[in-house]
Design a protein around this nucleic acid. Structure first.
Lengths: 122, 122
DNA sequence: GTAACCACTTTCTTATTGGTAACTATATTG
DNA sequence: CAATATAGTTACCAATAAGAAAGTGGTTAC
């Protein structure tokens, strides 16, 4: 099979669904964005400074943290607040809009947890 | 900042959460798996043959469809049934276990839909 | 004045993903 | 016997994602 001709077999509703799914993937996809949301959410009682987040998320590089935070900020999911301290510190926090994704992230996480249980029993 | 030393700032529960999230991403990540789940779910009244799925999902190549279906089958999320017809046909269907992800996929989809509404109003 | 800390950015390189097109194998149709 | 259909596989290539390392610019501590 080479690239298949698409002849709108599916209802309009389905194309919309596909686009919506892709949007979500575009916004939250990649290796680190969900981890950052998780970290920021769990540590929301503390101030989340750039270096702190980097230390908290095992394996992430400065470049990726910077890039992913910028992407999230662009989509208004995270807000960036610069504090005029001695060496400046920059705080990141999940916006109310970003929080609208938390139940979805939780669902993903919980499916992962139950999957781990599932494969333990073969 | 170069690669940060990780000094378990987060509770054990959080590491588990991160692993679970990563599992889910590993299993359902990539460009096509969620689309395939969606397609198979919506069209579950019909028999889903290989070529049909290819025609139904706009833009997917035979190689990717084959690969993604194989991955999903390996994780017992989709089952593959060969029918001994004139030219053989192969039917794919979401397993009950695969169906356990449908509510999660729906949540992703619905967030995407509401996000489309959200950005329409700036 | 040099070392250290914060918050990045830049450059270079590697790894992963995904796409195109051709090919295999079997079977039917005209 | 050539064309078409099903269900893939294989080889090659381009694009993207991600990692490693070094550098920037400002401030402060010793």
């Amino acid at each position: 099979m080479n690239n298949v001709q698409h002849e709108d077999v599916l209802p309009e509703q389905c194309n919309e669904a596909i686009l919506a799914l892709r949007d979500t993937i575009d916004i939250w996809g990649g290796k680190w964005k969900l981890m950052i949301l998780l970290y920021l959410t769990i540590n929301s009682n503390n101030k989340n400074y750039f270096m702190e987040i980097g230390r908290g998320i095992s394996g992430i590089s400065g470049k990726m943290l910077s890039k992913e935070l910028k992407d999230l900020e662009m989509n208004k999911l995270v807000k960036r607040v610069v504090h005029d301290t001695k060496p400046i510190t920059v705080e990141y926090a999940v916006t109310p809009y970003g929080m609208s994704f938390i139940p979805v992230a939780k669902a993903l996480l919980e499916w992962g947890l139950s999957h781990r249980e599932h494969i333990k029993q073969y």
